[in-house]
Amino acid sequence: MSSTYSQIYIQVVMAVKGRNSLISQSWEEELYKYMTGIITNKGQKLISINGMPDHIHILIGMKPACCLSDLIREVKKASNKFVKEKKFTKYKFDWQDGYGAFSYSHSALDNVIAYIQNQKEHHKKKTFKQEYIGFLKKFQVVYEEKYLFEWIEE
C-alpha cells in the first residue's frame, strides 16, 4: 500500500479590511485559539500564529490534499463570524480580500516562528506595507501595487 509523504510549510499573511486596527490585545489570544481550532479541524497543523491589530501571520504545516485557498476562505469566514458573535469590537469587522502565502523549508522554521512571535517588536521598526512588500520581493512574487491590501500610510 503506497502512501504520500510531504513537508509543506506555508506562512499566510492576512489583513483586516481597510487595514483597520480592530484586533485588540484583550481578545487576540481568543481569536488565535479559535483560528487554530479551525485549521486543526481541517486536518492541518498550525505551527505559529500572531499579529498586530491590523493583520495576522499564520504558519501552517499542510498536507498535500489541502487546498490553501479553501482553507483560508474557511478561516476568514468562520473567524469573521466568531468576532461578530462575541461582539469583540463595536466596529464592523471583516478580513480584506486576498492574502499572502509564502513557503518555507523545514530548516527555516525556527526563524519563521521567531519572526511571527516577535511581531509587536518587529513593527516598531517596520510598517506592515514595508513588511508585506518585502515578502513579495524576497519570494520574487510578481505583483501590481493597485491589487495589494488597502494601505494606511503610517
Rank of each mutant, 00 (worst) to 15 (best):
S107P: 05
F135V: 04
S105Q: 11
N41R: 14
F93D: 07
K63T: 12
M52Q: 14
Y5C: 10
Q117K: 15
D54F: 02
Q117G: 05
H123T: 04
V75A: 09
T127A: 07
Q25S: 15
I58C: 12
F82T: 02
I60R: 03
K87Y: 02
L31S: 05
M62F: 01
Q117S: 11
V75N: 03
G100Y: 05
K124W: 00
E145L: 06
K137W: 00
Q117M: 13
L68V: 06
E30H: 11
L59N: 03
Y34A: 05
V13F: 10
Y91K: 15
I49F: 00
Y104E: 04
N20Q: 15
I60N: 04
K87G: 00
I133Y: 00
A78G: 00
K63G: 08
L136K: 04
T4R: 11
I49S: 04
I47G: 04
G98Y: 06
I133T: 09
Q140H: 12
H122D: 07
L109P: 05
M35W: 04
Y9L: 12
E121I: 13
M1G: 15
T4L: 14
Q96Y: 03
N20T: 10
D94F: 13
E150G: 02
E154R: 12
F88Y: 15
A101F: 04
K137R: 13
Y104T: 05
Y32D: 09
V12P: 06
Q7G: 09
S24W: 05
A78I: 04
Y32I: 07
K76M: 01
K77Y: 15
A108T: 09
Q140W: 00
K138Y: 12
K125W: 10
I72C: 00
E154Q: 12
E29P: 09
G134F: 04
Y91T: 08
S79I: 01
V142M: 06
K86V: 02
G61T: 01
F128I: 04
K120C: 06
L136S: 06
Q96D: 05
N41H: 11
V142Q: 13
K138Q: 13
T127P: 06
E85K: 13
I56L: 14
A108K: 12
S2R: 13
K146N: 09
V75F: 02
V12W: 07
A114Q: 12
S48P: 01
L22P: 08
V75P: 01
S79L: 01
L31K: 04
I56D: 01
S69A: 13
G100H: 03
K129C: 01
D94V: 01
V75D: 01
M62N: 04
N118H: 12
Q44V: 05
M52S: 11
I72Q: 00
E85H: 10
I152W: 02
F102A: 09
W95A: 03
I47T: 12
N50E: 08
